[in-house]
């Protein structure tokens, strides 16, 4: 008998692990990554490679030499952070800037708080915002690199749609967004190209029950409603709902960054409020702030509210009001 295990129930386990969940996120990001490679070519491939290698090596080195703990790179969370960081950078970002971004994301935002599960801020966004504040020129250099396929290089090569608002005015900028923007939206970071590719990945995660849809839907709804209200009141000054949903980092942020397990609320209601906060802040920054885009700031600010949302909102318990 002594060769048999005696331990408490449950005696079986679901086929799920941190690694399998992270792998699902990576699979979900693949369509958008492939699209970014097609449109931005070797330049984007290089950024992605540098980001992944830097993030993974850094986490490995920190656990081995600084924390003297078992390596956690096998859980693939560093790879997810790396892909998201790369997708948040302009397609011509120099390699050393990518490395600095990776260092801030992994060393500062993630590992210094205790590694996976402990960080307050989304690591990839923290890395990006650090770069935006430190290297504003590089981080807004929207020169288009040579892609593998020839995209429409007509109206607005070299600047993001959001950047056009101040130049063309809201009413003109609004006209630049149409159904083709859903498929590809040239100008901006890799993660801003294809709404369809991002949404397909998000849908994969929702169907596989890797994430719940409420945070994302709440952000979309908030952005759409606020944009609709302002746009109806004054179409000359404020861009409309479709423009605000399809441009900039709203889709990437709502689908893949705001839904990060560690830095989002646990309860559904908390998630909806979290999403509302992000939607509200991003629209206020876009309409009234000095930056053309505010998705990163919106997520980081709401990350700070997560502990409070977790304390305030709990799921309904069985047999209790």
């Amino acid at each position: 008998m002594d060769k048999h295990i005696v331990s408490p129930n449950p005696h079986i386990h679901a086929p799920v692990s941190t690694r399998s969940l992270m792998l699902d996120v990576i699979i979900a990001l693949c369509p958008a990554v492939v699209v970014s490679f097609l449109f931005y070519g070797w330049s984007e491939v290089m950024i992605m490679a540098v980001s992944i290698v830097s993030c993974v090596l850094l986490e490995w080195a920190i656990t081995k030499w600084m924390l003297k703990a078992p390596s956690t790179v096998g859980d693939l969370s560093a790879v997810v952070t790396a892909i998201l960081l790369a997708m948040n950078l302009p397609p011509v970002t120099p390699w050393w800037v990518v490395v600095i971004g990776a260092a801030v994301a992994i060393a500062v935002a993630k590992m210094s708080f205790g590694g996976i599960g402990q960080n307050i801020f989304n690591p990839a966004i923290t890395g990006r915002v650090f770069l935006l504040l430190s290297f504003p020129a590089i981080m807004t250099d929207w020169t288009l690199p040579q892609g593998f396929i020839n995209p429409h290089l007509d109206a607005f090569s070299g600047a993001t749609l959001l950047g056009q608002v101040n130049i063309l005015g809201a009413a003109q900028a609004d006209k630049l967004v149409g159904l083709q923007t859903l498929w590809h939206n040239i100008g901006g970071s890799a993660g801003e190209i294809s709404a369809i590719a991002l949404l397909a990945g998000w849908l994969y995660l929702v169907v596989r029950k890797v994430i719940r849809p409420w945070i994302t839907l709440s952000i979309f709804a908030t952005v759409a409603v606020i944009a609709a209200i302002f746009h109806l009141a004054d179409p000359e000054s404020f861009t409309g709902p479709l423009f605000n949903l399809l441009t900039g980092g709203v889709i990437l942020g709502a689908c893949f960054m705001a839904t990060d397990y560690v830095t989002s609320p646990m309860s559904n209601l908390g998630g909806v409020i979290f999403g509302f906060g992000i939607g509200l802040i991003v629209m206020m920054i876009r309409y009234f702030g000095s930056y053309p885009e505010g998705m990163s700031f919106a997520i980081l600010i709401m990350n700070m509210a997560v502990p409070l949302l977790n304390m305030a909102f709990h799921q309904r318990k069985f047999g209790r009001k």
């Binding site: 397990y261 646990m266 799921q315 047999g319």
Partner: peptide, 18 residues
């Protein structure tokens, strides 16, 4: 390994506990 705060335990709990 470390809890990643995914909330799967709360969603699985038939008593609605966390």
């Amino acid at each position: 390994t470390a809890c990643i705060r995914c909330g799967r335990c709360s969603q699985a709990c038939p008593m609605g506990l966390e």
